[in-house]
Write a protein that binds this DNA or RNA. Structure first.
Lengths: 199, 199
DNA sequence: AGATATCTGTAGTGTTCACTACAAATGTGG
DNA sequence: CCACATTTGTAGTGAACACTACAGATATCT
């Protein structure tokens, strides 16, 4: 028995194109017509490969998270908690203003509030944001164990703070803040981090 | 000549109900059916009073901004820049977790990225966020003139930082962060503010 | 080469969307 | 009380939406 006609498009490349559309217009603002055109495929190919619009988003998010995890691995590899925070903040400032992508971050632009029937989408995005926060917290727990952070420091608070600042930077980037502006925010935040780690 | 049948609903009360729907579902996620039901009116009344869905949003935002301005007036009335920052951050933490409203802030939940034809909505929201940032900056300019802030301090940077943090708190609130979590973020941010104002 | 399994492109499907035509209702001004 | 201006509720409008039926194309496996 045969194995069927092979797929004529590269799924990962198509997901990158879909990612861009979701990023630019949000989940609800992105239409199947825009997605299929960007992916250079027809609707039946999209549905055969990803099941639904939400399935496509999840696949795009998986790919996004993959890249982000690789990046986070490099970030938490920094020798000290302070350098972890510095890299995290500064590289976020750069990433969110990278002209190769829409401004901000897909996990925020994708949609914080959605209509009836898409309630799952904000959850899905939030879960992926939380993942980054978890990775930071675990790194700070380690830093504490290594004596790199003081005994009275709460790794969860530090991680949550950094996560909040970068989310805020997303919002600013989406409304046109430039790289320099985001770096200033990052710099001030880093001061807070230093101050916090003294406690 | 007569003046026509009077309106049977209170426009401001209706706007408050519409605000809630936009807040909860975002601009694109909110449907006219949901809006009219929440406002307890029929579509023709909505369109006669506000012109379009986007017109309704703008009217709701005007009302939102009105309340927010009154609140900001009280915030910037604090005697010192430090107290301004403290009130701004802490009251934001409380407001974004006020059970009387959906979590977060309408100016962020409303929609950071929208579909073709609604490109104006993110701009409209961003303009209102910028307004708050401007009010903060002006207050810090005054603080500097009064000697309350050092010569080397940049009011614009401070204002932008506080604005970013509260936007980030919105994102966290929208994904379920509770009041205590937001207050911790606010507390850390305040440390950064103090540190910054020493420079 | 033939049978089979999957993909592809065309051309739709029903549903939901924002929005409105229209006639009845209800107020004001003369 | 009458002419008029505006609102209200009913019942839709065309357009755009996510999604799919179907037939032809293209691969694999025997």
């Amino acid at each position: 028995m045969g194995m069927g006609r092979p797929r004529a498009f590269d799924a990962d490349a198509a997901l990158d194109r879909a990612m861009d559309v979701f990023w630019r217009h949000g989940y609800e603002g992105a239409t199947i017509a825009q997605l299929t055109e960007a992916m250079s495929i027809n609707p039946p190919s999209l549905y055969a490969a990803f099941g639904s619009k939400e399935g496509l988003l999840k696949a795009a998010l998986d790919r996004y998270t993959e890249k982000r995890d690789a990046w986070m691995d490099r970030v938490v590899d920094a020798p000290t908690a302070h350098e972890v925070a510095e890299r995290f903040l500064m590289e976020h400032a750069d990433a969110q203003t990278d002209p190769a992508n829409p401004p901000g971050c897909l996990l925020v632009q994708g949609g914080l509030a959605c209509g009836t029937g898409s309630e799952n989408v904000p959850f899905e995005l939030a879960a992926r944001r939380t993942r980054t926060e978890d990775q930071l917290r675990e790194r700070f727990v380690r830093a504490k164990a290594e004596g790199d952070l003081g005994e009275s420091v709460d790794p969860a608070t530090l991680a949550r703070y950094l996560s909040a600042v970068t989310s805020g930077m997303c919002v600013m980037a989406s409304s046109g803040a430039d790289r320099e502006a985001l770096r200033e925010i990052a710099a001030v935040s880093l001061k807070a981090f230093e101050e916090q780690t003294k406690g």
